[in-house]
Amino acid sequence: MPARPVVKRLPARRGLFAGFKGNVDAITIGLKYLVDPKRITLIYPNEYIKLDPGYRGFIVLEPKKCINCSSCARICPAAAMRMIRRMEEDPKTGKKKMKLWPVINYQRCIFCGYCVDVCPTEALYTVPYHDIVYENMAEMDWGLETFVKPPEYPTAKEGIPVKYIVDEEKGLVKVRAEEGEEE
């Protein structure tokens, strides 16, 4: 039974100088940061975070791998990924056949990544970015043609890619993503 409740007391605060010390401590800390701010602000979009490959961003379909099983649509919790019917020609036999293809509606997608994880052939993959602006809602409802290619990431053209690394002194430190230098 390693976990145990421990009754603690609030730190006592008595005497004439307790309040004085508290004030001095608070002001000292304030001034310390006034002199050395240790900022972590990201100046977006002049800078943008280059996310790790494992990040669950926008989802892209590789149609060659897709076996039209509709597992992704079945598991989608937001009903963003749904199947559409398409008449397609079979390359071998030349027969026309009805096939189901997934399409995604980014008005709804919550980026949970279930579809990627459930896909039996890894036909879906995520790209590590998701801050893309659309001019209207209709554009966010992707058809199959849009779904098969990674979306354009405009921020990457405008800004400097940065990365946050966990640091012992400052918490997070912003570094340039490519060189790995501290800014």
Binding site: S70, A73, A79, M83, I84, R85, Y134, A138, E139
Partner: peptide
Amino acid sequence: KEEPIIRTTPPTG
């Protein structure tokens, strides 16, 4: 009602 997985309306984008 939850929506069916097969979609009949075409995507708009």
